[in-house]
């Protein structure tokens, strides 16, 4: 048991080392943050001025700016390209070397992603927080909300991982999954409230979205930070995140089993 944990920790360390190799990439993408924020800032300033309202769909203008800062933070943290790695390995035929390595496929990939993303905390999350505090009026959340926000973001990462992982597994049948990956990315940005908060959506779409995992990847952690839920509400949202994680975990396991059968039967 302990040796197994040590093995996956070592795998996470590999992810971290690869991340360090690509620190430049992390830092460069960081530059896009102030730019996007400025665009959103002026866009919404114009919208609020045009409508002449102080509150639109429950958001004041400063609230909305805070929303976008938090959206960037969560967006970076939950970024997960595991579907890309899996499909590349399948198409180039490297996947066989992974199957002859004594690690569980799912956990091997999860550990790697945790490793690479943990660098994002230092190189992306903290700097964007600082930018938000200094330039965009991001309020310091109460301790409870802040801690719960962090917990919720971690759960959101797991959710994003399992969604991406399942998309990646489809490569065992489809080989080229660029199209599905694009759909996955769009859904994940749009239905998680990455472009506009979910409360701006039509009622019907909001209702549907409650039954999908996407809003738990971004919208929910942001709302926790902004204090939109009661304490009990926060806990129940975390509970819902957990339920989705468990569901997607079992889905991943079932799909993986079939993917391996597909591979070992056809000998891709």
């Amino acid at each position: 048991m302990i040796s197994t944990i040590k093995a996956y920790l070592a795998q996470a360390k590999i992810g971290l080392k690869v991340g360090v190799k690509y620190r430049f990439h992390f830092l460069i993408t960081l530059l896009t943050v102030p730019l996007s924020l400025i665009i959103y800032y002026f866009l919404w300033q114009a919208i609020y001025a045009y409508t002449g309202q102080d509150i639109i769909r429950g958001f004041t203008f400063p609230d909305l700016v805070q929303y976008y800062v938090l959206s960037m933070i969560v967006g970076f943290f939950v970024w997960c390209d595991v579907d890309k790695w899996i499909s590349q390995d399948v198409r180039r035929g490297h996947i066989i070397t992974i199957f002859t390595y004594p690690m569980k496929f799912l956990w091997q990939h999860l550990a790697f992603e945790i490793g690479i993303n943990s660098l994002g905390i230092v190189l992306q999350m903290i700097p964007i927080f600082l930018i938000g505090f200094v330039f965009f009026g991001l309020a310091v959340a109460p301790a409870f909300n802040f801690v719960m926000f962090i917990v919720s973001v971690m759960l959101a990462f797991l959710l994003a991982f399992f969604i991406s992982f399942n998309v990646g597994l489809s490569a065992f049948w489809l080989k080229k999954i660029e199209g599905i990956r694009r759909v996955r990315r769009t859904l994940l940005v749009f239905l998680s409230g990455g472009m506009i908060p979910l409360s701006f959506f039509p009622q019907s779409l909001q209702q549907v979205s409650h039954f999908l995992p996407f809003e738990y990847v971004r919208y929910v952690p942001i709302q926790i930070y902004l204090g939109e839920f009661s304490r009990l509400g926060v806990l129940s949202q975390l509970g819902l995140q957990l339920v989705w994680i468990v569901l997607l975990y079992f889905l991943s396991k079932a799909v993986y089993k079939r993917a391996f059968k597909q591979f070992a039967g056809a000998g891709v």
Partner: peptide
């Protein structure tokens, strides 16, 4: 014909990973 070492890292890193994986 297939890569079995981490492409971006020196082989030594893969060896240390193997140390843990194979205990």
């Amino acid at each position: 014909q297939k890569p079995q070492l981490h492409w971006d890292l020196p082989p030594l890193d893969t060896y240390w990973l193997n140390k843990e994986v194979y205990d």
